[in-house]
Simulated scan of single mutants.
Amino acid sequence: MAIKFILSDYVDRAIAQAIYDKLEDGTFTGRIPVCKGVIAFASTLRECENELRSTLEDWILLGLKLGHSLPVIDNIDLNKEPSLEPMDTV
């Protein structure tokens, strides 16, 4: 039985769609087009990726808390209501 980490997979697959650009001043910007408003800036590409991941995580948590519809990424849909297993299956 394979263990699935839905939120981690969602973040990884969203980050895989990121677009990075080097700015005129030598710094970097990163964005995830499907996740509107998720953008980051940093002095190195690695820092930019880390900042983008952190921004994405905050964006997801806020979106879930506020009931916003999040984009489906690679068939991972965070908008579905969780299903609960009966206690006797634990």
Score class of each variant (00 low, 15 high):
residue 7 L to Q: 10
residue 67 G to I: 01
residue 35 C to A: 13
residue 53 R to Q: 07
residue 21 D to H: 13
residue 55 T to F: 09
residue 21 D to L: 14
residue 84 L to F: 12
residue 34 V to R: 15
residue 84 L to P: 05
residue 19 I to Y: 06
residue 38 V to K: 06
residue 54 S to V: 15
residue 58 D to W: 13
residue 84 L to G: 07
residue 46 R to A: 13
residue 67 G to W: 00
residue 60 I to F: 01
residue 75 N to Y: 01
residue 47 E to A: 09
residue 56 L to T: 04
residue 37 G to A: 08
residue 5 F to T: 13
residue 16 A to K: 10
residue 16 A to N: 15
residue 4 K to H: 10
residue 6 I to E: 03
residue 20 Y to A: 05
residue 83 S to E: 14
residue 8 S to D: 09
residue 47 E to C: 02
residue 21 D to A: 14
residue 37 G to H: 09
residue 73 I to P: 12
residue 48 C to H: 07
residue 90 V to W: 03
residue 19 I to F: 12
residue 23 L to A: 13
residue 48 C to V: 04
residue 74 D to M: 01
residue 23 L to H: 06
residue 4 K to I: 14
residue 69 S to I: 06
residue 46 R to G: 09
residue 4 K to P: 04
residue 81 E to W: 02
residue 35 C to I: 03
residue 42 A to N: 05
residue 43 S to F: 10
residue 81 E to Y: 08
residue 71 P to L: 01
residue 26 G to R: 12
residue 37 G to I: 07
residue 19 I to K: 10
residue 48 C to P: 08
residue 43 S to M: 05
residue 44 T to W: 10
residue 81 E to Q: 11
residue 16 A to D: 10
residue 38 V to H: 08
residue 48 C to M: 01
residue 25 D to P: 08
residue 42 A to V: 03
residue 13 R to K: 13
residue 28 F to M: 13
residue 40 A to E: 12
residue 66 L to I: 01
residue 82 P to M: 05
residue 45 L to E: 14
residue 39 I to C: 09
residue 16 A to Y: 13
residue 60 I to M: 04
residue 68 H to G: 00
residue 21 D to P: 04
residue 22 K to W: 14
residue 9 D to H: 04
residue 69 S to D: 07
residue 19 I to N: 03
residue 57 E to W: 07
residue 11 V to A: 14
residue 69 S to C: 11
residue 14 A to L: 11
residue 55 T to G: 11
residue 38 V to P: 12
residue 4 K to V: 04
residue 71 P to R: 01
residue 59 W to R: 05
residue 63 G to I: 00
residue 59 W to K: 09
residue 83 S to L: 12
residue 38 V to N: 10
residue 72 V to I: 14
residue 72 V to P: 00
residue 82 P to D: 05
residue 54 S to G: 07
residue 20 Y to C: 02
residue 13 R to V: 03
residue 69 S to W: 00
residue 10 Y to S: 10
residue 85 E to H: 08
residue 77 D to A: 00
residue 29 T to P: 08
residue 48 C to Q: 04
residue 26 G to F: 11
residue 60 I to A: 02
residue 73 I to V: 11
residue 14 A to R: 08
residue 51 E to R: 14
residue 83 S to M: 14
residue 79 N to I: 00
residue 42 A to W: 03
residue 12 D to K: 11
residue 87 M to I: 02
residue 45 L to K: 14
residue 55 T to L: 06
residue 5 F to I: 06
residue 7 L to F: 13
residue 80 K to P: 05
residue 28 F to L: 08
residue 10 Y to A: 06
residue 82 P to Y: 02
residue 50 N to L: 15
residue 90 V to H: 00
residue 45 L to H: 08
residue 72 V to N: 01
residue 90 V to Q: 03
residue 56 L to M: 11
residue 31 R to Q: 11
residue 1 M to Q: 10
residue 16 A to T: 08
residue 12 D to V: 02
residue 7 L to Y: 06
residue 19 I to R: 12
residue 86 P to R: 01
residue 86 P to C: 00
residue 17 Q to W: 06
residue 21 D to Y: 03
residue 70 L to K: 01
